[in-house]
């Protein structure tokens, strides 16, 4: 465990000393969130959630509830991507130097979780400072689930394709399209389409919407189970691809 914490500390220092990382992971999501919230009209909206419940709200209130999720998805996805890409780069010398395989894998993972836990609490605090949801704990739980799923997305992308520019762009685009558009009731014509259920942020958003506007928990269990399974599946896929990369992936990794 000492080795794991020593590596987690090194990865944290290495990451947080980079202005580009701090800007893209922690400041950019807030700027995007603020600007989106600022330009959203305060028009009434009606939408349903997966359990069939109908919610009446306004566009700006929806953004207040889902905003923390979007910011966290960007933060979690980008930070996990950058740490995993860095971990892949230095993994070999660390192993040769004497770190165990477990420490080399768990060190960056601990760094990611530590930072994202703090960021999730900050994100939740910001959201509840702007508006008090019906069930604050439900909104907090949805932020945590989004953090886990998008951290797994970032780690998977870094495993498959660790180039910083392209990988960051994919994470940013995916989280934006998912949480600001498709999984969000604001996404007219795409929200609740059957294919949208497969997006990483869909089920966490369902919890956020119900917790934000209703005092019920009709989607909580199903959405929690599916979100956790989603994160777990992506995490296991990353580990599997790392341990036994198929030939096409080995070629792509060498090229990257």
């Amino acid at each position: 465990m000492n080795q794991t914490f020593a590596l987690a500390h090194s990865f944290l220092l290495d990451m947080l000393r980079q202005r580009t990382v701090v800007f893209s992971c922690f400041i950019l999501p807030l700027v995007i969130l603020w600007s989106t919230w600022w330009v959203t009209a305060d028009l009434p909206m009606e939408f349903r959630i997966d359990s069939g419940r109908i919610i009446q709200s306004s566009m700006i209130d929806i953004h207040l509830v889902t905003g923390a999720l979007t910011a966290m998805a960007i933060t979690a996805g980008l930070f996990a991507f950058l740490v995993t890409a860095e971990a892949r780069r230095v993994a070999d010398p660390l192993k040769v130097a004497g770190y165990s395989g477990f420490a080399v894998a768990a060190g960056p993972f601990t760094a990611i979780l530590g930072v994202l836990l703090v960021a999730a609490l900050a994100s939740f605090g910001l959201a509840t400072a702007l508006d008090v949801p019906q069930q604050p704990l439900g909104v907090l739980w949805s932020v945590v689930l989004t953090t886990l799923t998008y951290a797994a997305v970032g780690a998977l992308i870094a495993t498959v394709y660790p180039r910083v520019m392209e990988g960051s762009f994919i994470v940013l685009l995916l989280s934006f399209i998912d949480l600001m558009f498709v999984s969000n009731p604001m996404g007219e014509g795409v929200y609740m389409q059957s294919w949208a259920y497969w997006l990483p942020g869909f089920w966490a958003t369902q919890i956020a919407l119900e917790s934000g506007f209703l005092a019920t928990d009709t989607v909580l269990v199903k959405a929690t189970a599916l979100s956790l399974m989603y994160a777990l599946a992506l995490g296991l896929l990353s580990v599997l691809l790392r341990l036994r990369p198929p030939a096409f992936l080995r070629r792509a990794m060498r090229a990257a």
């Binding site: 090194s10 220092l13 130097a97």
Partner: peptide, 28 residues
């Protein structure tokens, strides 16, 4: 034990020289 100096620099770019020594020395 084997010590390895790779062709390319695979260290923590944003840690100092001393900090990198400590990270790798701790492994030994």
């Amino acid at each position: 034990r084997a010590g390895y100096s790779p062709q390319e620099l695979l260290l923590f770019d944003h840690l100092t020289v001393r900090e990198n020594f400590r990270v790798f020395g701790r492994a030994a």
